[in-house]
């Protein structure tokens, strides 16, 4: 589904990703862990096509299509979804209006039938319920005044409506209380399907008890330095990252 080969990228002329390889097959969940500043969020932004994230080498394909050739919004419409580590607020634009515009853009691109206002509302309410957000949140400005945990749940709610092919969750678990963690994990698990893949960036093994990954990778200094199955996460929890120094996958 998603193939990343020797990906190198700069931010503000600083080399952050230094030859990263990753192969994600349909239906798989890959967890990425790694020290602060390793480039995990950068990877997410590079895949999403954020302005100012300059790819200097390598390739990324989504179902064989050259992802790097597409503009940010085109990648989103193709099915790339990024749940942000720090979701921004858009005051004045209601969550509902934002979601409708988003869903419309994505569905039009995928040549799926449009949702009329009534069925959209129904789906939006269901999604809110699934992540335990009150329906009032649909009327509020996008992330406006939301608590940290509410913002994260709002991201998952959006993911549910957009039905992406590949979802990148950047530390969606940080800032969540124990119940919310469960709620978010349930939301993700409900979306797991043979056609949909996930990259789950996290610092905590705990999340992976709920969302059980097929693979766990360690990203350090702009590269994947170790890969394994879910047991790697347990090992990391125990030993930290120090023992991996100098190692390269």
């Amino acid at each position: 589904m998603l193939t990343i080969e020797n990906l190198q990228a700069n931010v503000s002329d600083k080399n952050i990703l230094k030859g990263l390889n990753l192969e994600i097959k349909p239906g798989e969940v890959h967890a990425i862990m790694g020290p602060n500043g390793a480039g995990k969020s950068t990877l997410g932004h590079v895949l999403a096509g954020r302005d100012g994230y300059e790819v200097t080498g390598g390739s990324v394909t989504l179902e064989g299509k050259d992802l790097l050739a597409l503009a940010c919004e085109e990648r989103a419409r193709e099915g790339v979804f990024l749940a942000f580590q720090y979701p921004v607020e858009i005051p004045g634009v209601s969550n509902m209006e934002f979601l409708k515009a988003s869903v419309d853009a994505v569905r039009t691109h995928r040549e799926l039938p449009a949702w009329d206002a009534v069925s959209f509302m129904k789906k939006a309410r269901e999604a809110c319920k699934a992540v335990n957000l009150d329906q009032q949140f649909l009327k509020r400005g996008v992330n406006e005044g939301f608590s940290g945990g509410e913002k994260k749940r709002n991201e998952i709610m959006q993911m549910m409506l957009l039905e992406p092919k590949i979802a990148i969750l950047d530390e969606t678990d940080s800032g969540l209380d124990i119940d919310a963690l469960q709620v978010v994990a349930n939301g993700v698990n409900a979306l797991r399907s043979p056609e949909r893949s996930f990259i789950v960036v996290t610092h905590y093994q705990r999340l992976l008890d709920y969302i059980v990954p097929d693979y766990v990778h360690v990203l350090a200094d702009g590269k994947i330095v170790k890969s394994g199955d879910k047991n790697l996460a347990l090992e990391l929890e125990e030993k930290g990252y120090g023992w991996l120094e100098g190692e390269s996958a």
Partner: peptide, 10 residues
Amino acid sequence: QLYLCQQRGI
């Protein structure tokens, strides 16, 4: 803000 919108296909 624009990035958030674009990442959602807008």
